[in-house]
């Protein structure tokens, strides 16, 4: 397969980036997208050029490290996958592929296609946890009976890997789906209810401080989420936030 890659190259956060064209050939349909970029980078290294910087780690759709806006969609044209799970068979011989970093003011570019998603870490640190005494008297979580549907909903929310595709897909660069998943995974469980009021207030405050946009319920985040996180979580977070605000 022969392809033309239009890749965003940017030296650092403060420099001005630009697209650079890279023709590439010998790409197999069974290769993953990141393997295709590995091939490109090896060719660049062999020519003495600087390889393209992009994020990756587990390469099996678990860690949420890989990103990339591919032909206008985060994680590319396939559904319920991360970029590392995207296969080149999704493209045709002769295609032009535009590869950009996730774009959001809250996700500044570090270099080329790598962005700083530590805004998500700070939202999580603001309240995405439960306070547990770990002195040795901690009760096993499984001893508390939990309604199956609630346990399933909490598990589904916890499936969020924090990749940032929701922000990248949203026309407003909103982080509501991520934040709501992290609020929901605790709000649905008895252990999480103890600090639920302060959690949602703190996490939403941090989300706003990071400079993400406002949710306008387009649903793009849900469609592009590699883990299928539902918009129900956003509605739940809105409820939690309104109730928490009334409680003070």
């Amino acid at each position: 397969m022969k392809l033309l890659l239009k890749i965003w190259r940017q030296q650092n956060a403060s420099s001005k980036g630009k697209f650079v064209d890279y023709p590439i050939s010998g790409i197999e349909g069974d290769m993953s997208f990141l393997e295709m970029l590995d091939v490109l980078n090896q060719q660049l290294i062999d020519k003495g050029e600087e390889p393209v910087v992009f994020d990756h780690d587990c390469r099996e759709g678990i860690c949420g490290t890989c990103s990339l806006q591919i032909n206008g969609e985060p994680h590319g044209p396939d559904r319920l996958i991360t970029t590392c799970q995207l296969h080149m068979r999704m493209f045709k011989d002769g295609d032009t592929i535009v590869i950009e970093p996730f774009r959001a003011k809250a996700f500044p570019v570090i270099k080329d296609l790598m962005v700083d998603r530590s805004a998500f870490d700070r939202i999580q640190q603001a309240g995405g946890y439960i306070s547990v005494n770990t002195s040795g008297n901690t009760v096993d979580a499984n001893t508390i009976p939990i309604e199956k549907t609630k346990a399933d909903d909490a598990f589904n929310a916890a499936a969020c890997i924090g990749c940032g595709a929701c922000v990248a897909a949203c026309k407003n660069a909103s982080a509501m789906l991520f934040t709501s998943a992290k609020v929901s995974q605790f709000a649905l469980l008895p252990q999480g209810r103890v600090e639920a009021t302060q959690r949602v207030l703190s996490m939403v405050r941090q989300m706003d401080l990071e400079g993400f946009g406002n949710c306008t319920n387009t649903g793009a985040c849900e469609v592009e989420c590699p883990k299928g996180i539902s918009l129900e979580n956003i509605a739940r977070m809105n409820r939690e936030y309104l109730m928490a605000s009334v409680k003070g």
Binding site: K6, N71, E73, R103, K105, K171, A173, G213, N214, A220
Partner: peptide, 21 residues
Amino acid sequence: IQNRQARSIRYARYNGGANAP
């Protein structure tokens, strides 16, 4: 206005129709 500021650098290619009406 605030939403536009949240993405100060626009995508060169943005396939919004793929995921939202």
